[in-house]
């Protein structure tokens, strides 16, 4: 596998302990979000995955927002 990057490979590939869980994708309000879980059923928005520039003006999807979702089990 070829990683063509200026970052030294030992930097890229080293695993680190992260406080929050691994970010995952979810859909909310019709928009795709990358969310870092911070507990059961809640998390912080890390990224809005969209190409429409208007979506980025919507304050609901600002990175750093806490979001909560309720799961029905």
């Amino acid at each position: 596998m070829a990683l063509y990057t200026i970052v030294p490979l030992e930097e890229v590939l080293s695993e680190e302990e992260t406080a929050t869980g691994r970010p995952f994708e979810m859909t909310m309000g019709g928009k795709r979000l990358l969310v870092a879980p911070e507990g059961p059923g809640q998390g912080r928005i890390m990224q809005l995955l969209s190409t429409d520039p208007a979506d980025f003006l919507d304050p609901r999807w600002h990175p750093g927002n806490m979001i909560i979702w309720l799961k029905t089990d």
Partner: peptide, 16 residues
């Protein structure tokens, strides 16, 4: 799955 959301007050005011 029912979804709910919370806001930051400052962002809402700026939009207002």
């Amino acid at each position: 799955m029912r979804l709910q959301m919370r806001w930051r007050q400052e962002q809402a005011e700026a939009e207002e």
